[in-house]
Computed example of a mutant assay.
Amino acid sequence: MRDPGYLLSEQLGEGLRGSNRVLGLAESCTGGGISAAITDVPGSSAWFDRGFVTYSNAAKVELLGVHPQTLQRYGAVSAETAGEMAAGVLAHSSADLALAVTGIAGPDGGTAEKPVGTVFVAWRQRGGEQAVCVRKQFSGDRQNIRQQTVLFCLQQLLQLVRAG
C-alpha cells in the first residue's frame, strides 16, 4: 500500500495534467517534504516546475523576493510572509499555481502567540489578485508536525485543482 502523500500527489498530478496547469512550491518548515512527495510520482515533471526550500530568512528574501520589512514586522511564520513566498514562486517560475508554507515544527521556537505546530499555508494562482492564506495548528513532535503539514498542503492543492 502506498503512503497517503504519494496517493495525494498522484491525484494532484492527474488534476494538474487534466487542467493543463503547472505547480511551484516554496517550503520552509517542511524542508522540501512536499516536493519530495510530488517527485515520487513518475512523470511529475510534466506538472511540477520547481520547489524552493527557503529555510532561512535570507533565502526567503534572495530566492523569493520576500521583503525584509515583512519579516521584521510580522516574522517568518506569518500570513504576510507566506503570501509573499507564494507570489515569489510565481515571479521566479513558470508555475500557474503556487503554494508556500512556513511554520514552527519545534521542538523550539514557539511563543505564546505562535506555539510549536503553528503553520501558515498560502496559495496563489497566476493572474490572481492576491494569495489566500490559512493558519493551522498541528500537534505532536517535529516529525509529526512536518508530516501533517505535508499532507495538509497536498490536500489543499488537490481541492484547489478540483475546484478549477
Rank of each mutant, 00 (worst) to 15 (best):
T81F: 00
R73H: 11
R17I: 14
W47M: 15
G31T: 01
K60D: 02
L97M: 13
A26Q: 13
V132I: 11
K114M: 09
A82K: 00
Q143G: 03
Q147P: 00
L64H: 00
A163G: 05
A46K: 12
R17D: 13
T118I: 01
V66D: 01
P107Q: 14
Q11S: 15
A95V: 15
V41T: 10
R142F: 14
L8E: 02
A36K: 15
Q125L: 14
P68L: 15
Q137P: 13
P42R: 04
A86L: 12
L99Y: 02
F138G: 03
L90Q: 06
P68S: 13
G103N: 01
G83L: 03
A91Y: 13
D96G: 09
E113R: 00
A95G: 14
G13M: 02
E14T: 11
C29A: 06
L90F: 13
R142Q: 14
M1Y: 00
Q69N: 08
E10A: 07
Q155S: 07
A131V: 10
Q156L: 13
L7P: 00
Q147H: 08
R50M: 08
W47Q: 15
G83A: 12
T54E: 06
V161W: 03
A112T: 04
A58F: 09
L25G: 04
R21H: 01
G106C: 08
G24D: 15
A100D: 02
N57P: 06
V22S: 12
D49Y: 09
L157G: 05
Q125K: 08
A59V: 10
L151C: 10
A86Q: 11
L158W: 01
S45Y: 12
C133A: 05
I104G: 07
S9P: 00
Q155L: 02
P4D: 06
G43K: 14
A100P: 01
G128T: 10
S93G: 03
K60F: 08
V61H: 01
R146Q: 15
W123L: 08
A87S: 09
Q125H: 11
D141Y: 11
S94R: 15
G164Q: 12
H92F: 01
W123F: 09
A112Y: 06
A122R: 06
Q137R: 14
G164P: 12
G75C: 00
G83Q: 07
S19Q: 05
V150Q: 10
V134S: 06
R126E: 02
Q156Y: 05
Q159T: 11
A86S: 09
K114Y: 06
D96Q: 11
I104R: 02
T54P: 07
C29L: 14
L8F: 02
G51R: 09
V121H: 01
V134W: 04
Y55V: 10
S45W: 13
G103A: 05
A98M: 13
D141T: 09
